[in-house]
Amino acid sequence: MAASDQNPNTPVRSPVTGIAPYDLKDGEEYMNDAQREHFRTILRAWRQELMEEVDRTVEHMKSEAANFADPADRATQEEEFSLELRTRDRERKLLKKISEALNDIDQGEYGYCKSCGAEIGIRRLEARPTATLCIECKTLQEIKEKQMA
């Protein structure tokens, strides 16, 4: 069992509402069919939520687009649209990570650290379903990034 799974009662906030955390059972094999299906469900639901948000943004920008006579009003609208577009760009990158995670599930590679091969852990994946590094490797990566900055 991974270190991040030692306390199965630790509450975890999933990025998707309405999907209960996975109920770990004693002695259960890591990344078994039920676990893979659980994460596939989370990732698909998350992807659907993001796609719906993209549609809402497009509709909002179409319906709210106006050519204001007042430069301040026009600047405010442009700033609002810019912020929305930056958010959508981050979500576009997240959609790519979600697709990669779904592909990893299909390939049997999901849930294992891309750096060292260790189990990432059910609770960590519940909190961050697109995680590709275990806690130790992610911490090391962040330390290196800080030193390079």
Results as ranks from 00 to 15, higher is better:
T41C: 03
E59K: 06
M1Y: 09
L85Q: 13
T132Q: 11
G18L: 01
L24Q: 15
I19E: 01
E100Q: 13
C116F: 06
D89N: 12
C137M: 04
N32S: 06
E80P: 03
E126T: 02
T17R: 13
R92Y: 14
R88Q: 12
T10N: 13
M31D: 01
S99E: 15
R13P: 10
E80Y: 02
T132L: 05
C137R: 02
R90C: 06
R13K: 11
K25M: 00
T130K: 01
D26F: 02
L83W: 05
D33F: 02
P21G: 07
N9A: 15
A72E: 15
I120N: 02
E59M: 15
L50V: 04
K138A: 00
R36F: 14
A66Q: 15
D73K: 08
G121F: 01
M51K: 08
E64L: 09
E37D: 11
K146I: 09
L133C: 02
P71K: 05
E119T: 13
R44N: 10
H38N: 02
D104C: 05
E59A: 14
D70R: 03
E84C: 01
L43V: 02
S82C: 08
E100N: 09
I19Q: 02
N9P: 04
D33V: 01
Q6S: 15
R40A: 04
N67V: 13
V12E: 05
V12T: 06
F81Y: 12
G108E: 12
R44G: 12
G121P: 00
S4H: 10
Q147E: 15
D73I: 07
E100F: 04
E37F: 01
A75P: 07
E79C: 06
Y110P: 01
E84W: 09
R90A: 12
C134H: 01
A45C: 04
K93G: 11
D106Y: 01
R86Y: 08
E84Y: 05
N7H: 10
I105Q: 04
A72Q: 05
E136M: 07
E119L: 06
M51Y: 11
